[in-house]
């Protein structure tokens, strides 16, 4: 068993570890799936988790053109103004997520699934420094 001073160390190290974990989680894109998009222009300001959009999941089911032409999503992370009201009324994600083409959006946590504090951006690729991000 641990001695008393060791326990103190353990507590101190736990605190340090906690801080470091938070820092690491917030700063590191380590394992995010290639092309996952974080949408957090509004979500967190309005008390919801950021939205994670997975390109891989959607491209198995739809070609790029469906969202980037028919649904008129611009091909720049952050370039699309999407509100929950839009989606409920059948625009953007709501063009498919309406209970017809894909499941309807009653379960908030399926899309609002990101860790708090994430910045809006596309994840998992090499860091591009240019205007390509926005």
């Amino acid at each position: 068993m641990l001695t008393n001073p060791e326990k103190k160390h353990l507590i101190a190290s736990s605190v340090l570890f906690g801080i470091l974990s938070v820092w690491l989680v917030l700063s590191s894109p380590v394992a995010a799936e290639y092309a996952d998009v974080v949408l957090n222009k509004r979500a967190e300001k309005e008390g919801m988790r950021p939205v994670i959009f997975s390109h891989w999941f959607h491209r198995i089911r739809f070609r790029c053109k469906v969202c980037h032409s028919e649904l008129a999503f611009k091909m720049r992370a952050g370039a699309n103004e999407v509100t929950m009201a839009d989606i409920i009324e059948g625009r953007f994600c709501g063009m498919c997520h309406n209970g017809e083409v894909a499941w309807s959006v009653e379960n908030c946590d399926l899309c609002h699934s990101g860790k708090p504090g994430l910045e809006s951006q596309i994840k998992g690729s090499h860091e591009t420094g240019g205007p390509g991000i926005w």
């Binding site: 989680v25 590191s28 894109p29 380590v30 394992a31 995010a32 799936e33 996952d36 974080v38 988790r49 994670i52 997975s54 891989w56 999941f57 379960n107 908030c108 946590d109 399926l110 609002h112 699934s113 990101g114 860790k115 708090p116 994430l118 994840k123």
Partner: peptide, 17 residues
Amino acid sequence: DGIHDPTSEGTYLLQSP
């Protein structure tokens, strides 16, 4: 994966890549 919130139940309903 570092970006989904593991404390949210919804996260566990999503398919694993």
